[in-house]
């Protein structure tokens, strides 16, 4: 009797029961990980020969690619100018130093090249001449410059002078250092302990001597006048 009870229930109950079982089935379906092996798709039917295959390059497609005109790369500037910086420097030096005297004066192979520690006198086109100890020389092509240090009325004054500047008319060596400096840059001369003071006396003596030589009173030949090529011998020496 008891087992027959659900059957004897009204049909509406059957509806709920079935609904429940359907939900359970859905849950089971979701949890399954098993997948039946997929059947591979049958190969596509053979296409007519007029339709070109996208994977196979036929002669009909390749030919137009070859017909596109290609151009050679433009001529490389590197081949035209192998050392552009050198040429640029030479171009400017041709204008700034036509005789090449400044270049020769500060060339490293010049036996009389001014060194750090020498006293140099620079004359300007406009402005007073400036003399001082050469503390450092910066060789950078057109930017080549010398650093001069002097004491003017107790105050130390330093000046970088570009040797190729059009404003510079002459660079003269007033006095060589007695002993070769063991440094290339004598920045220690800024310290009071090593400061050598003013070069006024040396410059005055040099100018006096130069005047005597040029007048011929000393009986010494003026090197700038007696040279084979006076224009080139004047390595920045100011013509009197």
């Amino acid at each position: 009797m008891a087992s027959l009870t659900p059957i004897l229930r009204p049909t509406s109950c059957w509806k709920t029961l079935l609904r429940r079982s359907r939900q359970q089935k859905m849950c089971i379906r979701c949890l399954t990980t098993f997948e039946p092996p997929t059947v591979p798709l049958p190969p596509p039917p053979r296409l007519p020969s007029s339709y070109p295959s996208p994977f196979k390059l036929s002669r009909g497609i390749r030919e137009p690619i070859n017909k596109i005109k290609t151009y050679p790369p433009p001529p490389s500037a590197r081949n035209k100018y192998p050392c552009p910086l050198d040429e640029w420097t030479a171009m400017h030096l041709k204008d700034l130093d036509p005789t090449g005297s400044r270049t020769r004066l500060f060339a490293r192979n010049n036996p009389d090249v001014p060194n750090a520690g020498d006293i140099l006198l620079v004359t300007f086109k406009n402005g007073d001449p400036f003399a001082g100890y050469c503390i450092s020389i910066k060789r950078r092509g057109v930017d080549t410059a010398i650093l001069l240090r002097n004491r003017m009325m107790v105050t130390g004054v330093e000046m970088w002078v570009k040797i190729y500047s059009p404003n510079v008319t002459a660079i003269e060596v007033v006095k060589r250092a007695e002993k070769r400096a063991r440094r290339a840059r004598l920045y220690y001369m800024r310290k009071p302990k090593h400061d050598r003071g003013s070069v006024e006396g040396e410059v005055k003596e040099y100018l006096k001597r130069r005047r005597l030589i040029r007048s011929g009173a000393l009986g010494v030949k003026d090197p700038t006048m007696s040279a084979k090529r006076p224009e080139q011998a004047k390595s920045g020496v100011k013509a009197s």
Binding site: A145, T155, M159, K162
Partner: peptide, 19 residues
């Protein structure tokens, strides 16, 4: 009238004083 800091002029010269 004077500076310790170096300053550059139009013609490329650089000037520096000690005080």
């Amino acid at each position: 009238v004077r500076t310790r800091k170096k300053y550059q002029r139009k013609d490329g010269m650089v000037v520096r004083f000690d005080d």
